[in-house]
Design a protein around this nucleic acid. Structure first.
Lengths: 215, 215
DNA sequence: TCGTTTCCTGACCGTATGGTCAAGGTGAAG
DNA sequence: CTTCACCTTGACCATACGGTCAGGAAACGA
């Protein structure tokens, strides 16, 4: 009880470390609770319990529930963007889009809560991250459309509509996180095994890359 | 639109008509509010305002918020199932899957709120419709997998994993409803026009049917 | 007309929630 | 040891929410 395993710092124990560590714990708990209950259904008490901290302590680090939620969504957005970089260094659609599918599928498996929070936020009209949609996401989308168009112009894939290809990629890869519960239910209640995840990734890549004439 | 002209009965004014009409108005309002705010974020007062009825009147027709929500979700589930019938009467994947994509895309356009409520329900672990997932949806899925497998065996399409093909279809078509706000934002803030919807449907069908070697 | 069933609704209630606060704890620097 | 900035938290508060209820208004059938 006294030996709190929360902080495993050995040497520094700096104040900033306490802050960083607690913010980390709270954000992780909040991501789960927001994903499972939605913004309205989530309660600060629930998040506090899951974080193993008293509720008042959350308000010391995050002024309001909305502030906490905003931080969670921003965190997810960065993960999306990082995964998106695979697109650029690729010589063609097989590596670029194939790698993007791999990355997004991996994220759906490792960060399902984040994906759900993002989906929920967008479904509710993106009250918190509307500006991100209008700036960062739009710019990124335009850039990727240009890359795909270049591949098309180079004859590396069929002339498909790049925008709707992106939507198909987003939809399909995130489906394995957002609708993970439905997929699990249709899998006799068991989470997808390593083998099944590999099969899912291979199937998606196969259908998409064939669909765009890249293989 | 849920006009405020609640009761436009001229002749019969039957009791059952009053009940039916008010339930209709309430369910429509509830679908919108649940879609926009989630179950937790939705309030009976909000639904009442949108329905143009006093809150106490909602509780006359629907005992609890959860009852009302349950009815909304069931209503959506039936729409899904109806659209799914197109699958059966088709001689091959071009008509069957192509028609299914058309139908699902149309639903995404005409019933975006319903799709969002369904998505939200599943994302939160399907607390209300878990039994539907385990029975009706599972049976339907197994049946469609058999149909697709038969098409594959008949050489009408490439041997893809039918289950993951279904997931790709669900994900992509519902994406246009669930992420409609994001799509609209990336479309300069304007809803997709008739022409753009047609382009979306054509693009999805083209990529999918090519991906499975049906065309 | 009267009686009965159904519908309508303002006022009310217990509870749970987001948020506040003041008092106390903690650790490092001087 | 003292100081001081930072961290912790039980207790508390105002509000908003889901739900209740009693009493009245319509809508029928007879």
């Amino acid at each position: 009880m006294t030996g709190d395993a929360r902080i495993s710092q050995l040497k520094p124990g700096r104040r900033t470390d306490i802050r960083r560590e607690n913010e980390r714990v709270i954000l992780d708990a909040a991501e789960k609770v927001f994903a499972e209950a939605g913004f309205g259904g989530a309660t600060m008490q629930l998040i506090a319990d899951m974080a193993g901290l008293p509720k008042a302590n959350l308000h010391y680090y995050f002024a309001t529930k909305e502030d906490l939620y905003r931080r969670v969504v921003q965190q997810i957005f960065e993960i999306w963007l990082n995964a998106a970089m695979l697109f650029d260094a690729a010589p063609g659609p097989v590596e670029g889009i194939g790698g993007y599918i791999d990355a997004k599928m991996d994220i759906s498996r490792t960060h399902p809560s984040g994906s759900k929070v993002w989906a929920s936020e967008v479904m509710h009209g993106a009250p918190v991250i509307q500006d991100y949609l209008e700036t960062t996401l739009r710019d990124w989308t335009d850039g990727r459309i240009a890359v795909i168009q270049a591949w098309i112009d180079d004859g590396k894939m069929r002339p498909v509509n790049p925008r709707h290809l992106l939507y198909l990629l987003w939809a399909t890869t995130q489906h394995y996180a957002d609708f993970g519960h439905q997929i699990q239910t249709l899998n006799d209640g068991a989470p997808l095994s390593d083998r099944q995840w590999a099969e899912a990734k291979a199937s998606v890549k196969d259908m998409v890359l064939r669909g765009i004439g890249a293989i």
